[in-house]
Design a protein around this nucleic acid. Structure first.
Lengths: 215, 215
DNA sequence: GTCATCATGTAAGCCGTTACATGATTGC
DNA sequence: GCAATCATGTAACGGCTTACATGATGAC
């Protein structure tokens, strides 16, 4: 049930196309480098967890060196497997290509919407990156939840009593950052609301599921 | 040798006045709430570590049940210490007031200047909060080190290829944040340089250790 | 007499990292 | 043959949080 930012990222990427671990990391770094940056030590165990949980499955990966080579001619098999591999255009080491299962797609949506405990900036950033998978109302709910958090965070910061110049500058800068984040969220909220209203009058006819209310 | 953000914070606070654990946390939350926010589960073990290392010492706290009560009349001492406590105006539970040792003061300066591995935003924020304890050149070095890091971080972020609106907005916002942080550092650097130049002509005479070059 | 607050501490656990171990393939 | 890159995984540890255990004291 844990939130596991990593798993959210993995499911999100796999929702577009099946990928192997190495490539998942590559894309995360290339595309969301400023938002999410994970290491192999987290990635592979996470993939294993997701597979055990039934959220993803291995759909490809050219025979990973049979652990039980029946009887004889070990070196023969070895030689054969080494001579030619070329599986996916280029033959690297046997790679395990993972794909989302139907359950995984469901889990992803759940994770994305879920009230899931800690809603820190990393989690939010990742969630918002995948916001296109959410219903418009769910998007708005997410934004407003985050906004409320930041506002509270800002309120809790006392106006700094007797700090020296240096400490004050740090606190002030942090506060400015919060204000800026809130302003950003306000923009996003406005845009989402506009889109919602626009589609109310403008929309052709095809929106089957309007999802539940944003509280 | 570990960096231990917490220990830096503790040493920094104790450098101003001796305090007990509870109060250390209270001040950190009140003053640097946006920068540092630690829990008791981290604080007390950290204090214990620092005491073992000889960086801090207990200077007050009404007889915490002598581990070696010489010989007799144990219950007598106990009763005496329980009957009336009132130590610091208000008598709460026996509190252990910690103070920096000379070694602790040295450790603090080391931690503050040290190239110490991870220089994330939290560490930097805390260091800068205590920047008044640094020599002007060390302050400049700290700022420029941090700036270089942020610039590198920003460079590593590719201009985002084929992301959708939502993902792009997150990445862009993160990048904007970086740019803003760099601009902030630039202000601080300018201010420090101005102060340095000013004091070059203006300074009385008393700066014994000019520290090493900022490279 | 019991509740809130002040005060100190321990234990368990989470989430992530670095470092290590292994191995295939390509290019020099 | 050797290094670099691609690829997967394990082990150890680090830092921090939550939850728990304990206890004093003042206020109601």
């Amino acid at each position: 049930m844990m939130i596991h930012v990593i798993e959210l990222a993995i499911l999100g990427l796999l929702d577009e196309a099946p990928l192997h671990g190495y490539e998942i990391r590559r894309r995360l770094r290339a595309q969301l480098g400023l938002v999410a940056n994970i290491s192999f030590g987290s990635l592979y165990p996470a993939l294993a967890r997701l597979e055990r949980a039934g959220d993803v499955e291995v759909i490809e990966g050219d025979a990973p060196a049979d652990p039980l080579p029946s009887t004889g001619s070990l070196s023969g098999e070895r030689a054969a497997s080494r001579s030619k591999r070329i599986v996916n255009g280029r033959g690297r080491r046997s790679r395990k290509v993972y794909a989302l299962t139907d359950q995984g797609r469901a889990s992803f949506t759940t994770l994305l919407t879920a009230p899931g405990g800690t809603d820190d900036s990393r989690t939010f950033g990742l969630r918002w990156s995948f916001a296109r998978h959410l219903a418009p109302t769910a998007r708005l709910a997410l934004l407003e939840r985050r906004r409320a958090q930041l506002v509270q965070h800002l309120d809790e910061a006392a106006p700094a009593p007797e700090l020296d110049t240096y400490a004050k500058s740090v606190v002030q800068h942090a506060a400015d950052g919060l204000v800026r984040d809130i302003a950003w969220l306000d923009e996003l909220i406005a845009a989402e609301r506009a889109a919602l209203n626009g589609s109310d009058t403008d929309r052709p006819a095809g929106s089957p599921a309007t999802e539940n209310a944003p509280a």
